[in-house]
Amino acid sequence: MEVLYLLVPFALLLGGFFIAGFIWSVKSGHYDDLETPAHRILIDEQEEEIEND
């Protein structure tokens, strides 16, 4: 079980890495507009359909 003394900090480090990633994504504005991107992704398909016609 001694290995836990080493593995747990590693696991926490990994967790910390993800939290840091989350903070970075928030600060760079990924969550500022949650509504429009959901719509936008739908339209791109529509547009392609028209262009292919």
Binding site: G15, F22, V26, K27, Y31
Partner: peptide, 14 residues
């Protein structure tokens, strides 16, 4: 707004 989100994320992770 961003700070609120970070607060929640940090709390969730920990």
């Amino acid at each position: 707004d961003r700070q609120d989100l970070i607060r929640v994320g940090l709390a969730a992770g920990c």
